[in-house]
Design a binder for these strands. Structure first.
Length: 512
RNA sequence: GUUCCGUUGGUGUAAUGGUUAGCACGUUUGACUUUCUAUCAAGAGAUGGGGGUUCGAUUCCCCUACGGAAUACCA
């Protein structure tokens, strides 16, 4: 029987989950779904100094917003819990001890100052920038250089210490990455990483390996920033005797800033005025709220679709995918190796496509809010028709109102340019006839309205094109917008006639 | 500095040891006697550089350039 696929998303609650993290979660989710596997959400909160209140909640809310569901997590629990690393402290201790016993790890007593001094010294000598490795460890204060008696004495006296991994001097460490293929690193390039901190908490490396093993994770899909430490993790699996159940690794390409180079950061997002977090995030220090994709008007399915295609492609020319379809089409082999520059324009395009796909009913909720805020009245049928009419030409739900408020409110101002050029005597004559024929109409639809206008135009013997802008101006105050006949239908007979009369009264006819 | 990873138009990407190097976003132009932010049509625009291997390389190999990541008692 084949082993069940188990993946995990393991964020640390140090702030808002950013878009790169969402993509990592998404790829894990898609991979699990594709393979009928399970996905675990594990909170990596081993650094108590960086803990941010509300961050865990934020992560969960964000995943929920985009529709990523996990099978095992801190709230739901599961067979391999707890799913918060801070609640697993005792577990790590025993594995650290095993490493110690087997001679694969050692105690170190160096103070931060001593470490800094060593770093500085190495830098000056222009040697490799590892402060603790198979060479330097011989000159530092640790259980390899100190006598057993001395070590015990220090530990008993309560002197702070860490546990470091004893990385072998000469060894090829290799791993077969699912997206990059074979990656080989010589162990001399890896330093003696701290695996247990002086506060008794494990560092990422130990906690991660232990948890992935205990939670029976089969595939580790994570960001490229982890690639350099992956060999270290391989070493850890080996030392703990878990080589045969080591998960497969897949390191995702980074999301890059739109221009120039570098990893996409909040700074870049602010600079270009686009969000970087899925939902609003109030900075815990300054209190400044960063607008998230949700508030900015992005639909979750559009957002996910956009994100999925940033670093992966289906191999076909299809671009619009529901979450279901993504899960069906997804494959690790088609993940790109190179980093992807973030392009908000494409995100907007996806949003527009999704808005267009939505039904008027689905969009009406957005419009109703704006209508309520503006305290104007509108019938259900007007709202639905308005959504239907507007959805073809907008990118964000808010534009239902910002570009379509004339459907519910009389114009207060009139576009000066159009007025100057198109508000002519002949146009006004047509409008007068048009208004009076509207008055006698029984069936009030875009089609009958168009007939009425055509008649008025014919009667005055001028082209439709010469009066259309004036009609639009009278009705909406604008020079452009959606189909005018449908607009008039939504506005309604009496209101349309009123607006025409008001415009005729208010606007000055162009002198010619 | 060192180690690792990467490099197809402005952007996301496809493909291939021989093609007019495909698609999408964006952009430009035109059309739509009702405009446009919509729609339709057309256009411009790419294999970083140098060496090999080969009849032939964007594709395989090497070098180089450029970019990125890591190098914390952070994840």
């Amino acid at each position: 029987m084949e082993k069940e696929v188990r993946v995990r998303f393991a964020p640390s609650p140090t702030g808002a989950l950013h878009i790169g993290g969402v993509r990592t979660a998404l790829y894990n989710y898609l991979f699990a779904r594709k393979n009928n596997g399970k996905m675990v959400l594990r909170i990596e909160d081993t650094d108590q100094t960086r803990f941010v209140k509300g961050a865990e909640e934020y992560i969960k809310n964000s995943l929920a917003w985009v529709g990523i569901e996990t099978d095992e997590n801190p709230d739901l629990g599961g067979p391999y819990g707890p799913y918060r690393q801070s609640e697993r402290k005792d577990i790590y201790q025993q594995y650290a001890e095993k490493l110690l016993q087997d001679g694969n790890a050692y105690y170190a007593f160096d103070t931060p100052e001593e470490l800094d001094a060593m770093r500085a010294k190495l830098k000056e000598a222009k040697v490799a920038a590892q402060t603790y490795n198979s060479i330097t460890r011989n000159t530092m204060k640790n259980s390899l250089t100190l006598s057993e008696e001395e070590v015990n004495k220090r530990i008993e006296s309560g002197e702070p210490y860490v546990i470091r991994l004893k990385v072998p001097k000469k060894e090829e460490v290799r791993l077969n990455d699912m997206v990059r293929g074979w990656v080989m690193v010589h162990s001399s390039a890896i330093d003696d990483k701290v695996i247990m901190k002086s506060d008794g908490m494990p560092t990422y490396h130990l906690a991660n390996v232990v948890d992935d093993y205990l939670m029976k994770i089969t595939h580790v899909i994570r960001g490229e920033e982890w690639l350099p430490s992956a060999p270290l993790h391989v070493l850890l699996y080996k030392f703990l005797g878990w080589e045969n159940s080591m998960p497969q690794f897949g390191h995702l390409p980074l999301l890059l800033k739109p221009e120039g180079s570098g990893k996409l950061s909040k700074r870049d997002a602010d600079k270009h005025g686009f969000p970087i977090f899925p939902m609003d995030w109030p900075d815990p220090e300054s209190g400044d709220v960063s607008t998230g994709f949700e508030k900015a008007g992005y639909l979750p399915d559009a957002f996910i679709n956009f994100l999925a295609l940033l670093g992966w492609n289906p191999g076909s020319e299809q671009e619009i995918f529901s979450l279901e379809e993504l899960a069906e089409a997804f494959s690790i082999e088609r993940i790109n190796k190179g980093g992807a520059k973030f392009d908000i324009e494409k995100a907007k395009w996806f949003n527009q496509q999704y808005i267009k796909q939505k039904s008027a009913e689905e969009l009406s909720g957005f419009l109703k809010q704006y209508i309520a805020n503006a305290s104007v009245s509108a019938s259900e049928s007007q709202i639905l028709k308005a959504c239907e009419l507007m959805k073809e030409r907008i990118t964000f739900p808010r534009e239902l109102w910002t570009s379509g408020s004339f459907l519910f409110q009389r114009p207060e101002t009139y576009d000066g340019k159009v007025m100057k050029k198109k508000w002519t005597g002949e146009a006004v004559a047509v409008l007068e006839d048009f208004a009076s024929s509207l008055l006698s109409m029984e069936e009030f639809t875009a089609e009958t309205i168009k007939n009425a206008l055509n008649q008025a135009v014919e009667k005055n013997e001028i082209g439709l094109g010469r009066v259309m802008p004036a009609v639009r101006l009278a009705i909406t105050g604008l020079g452009s917008g959606p189909d005018l006949m449908s607009t008039i239908e939504i506005i309604g007979k009496e209101e349309a006639i009123d607006r025409i009369n008001i415009a005729i009264e208010k606007l000055e006819v162009k002198q010619s």
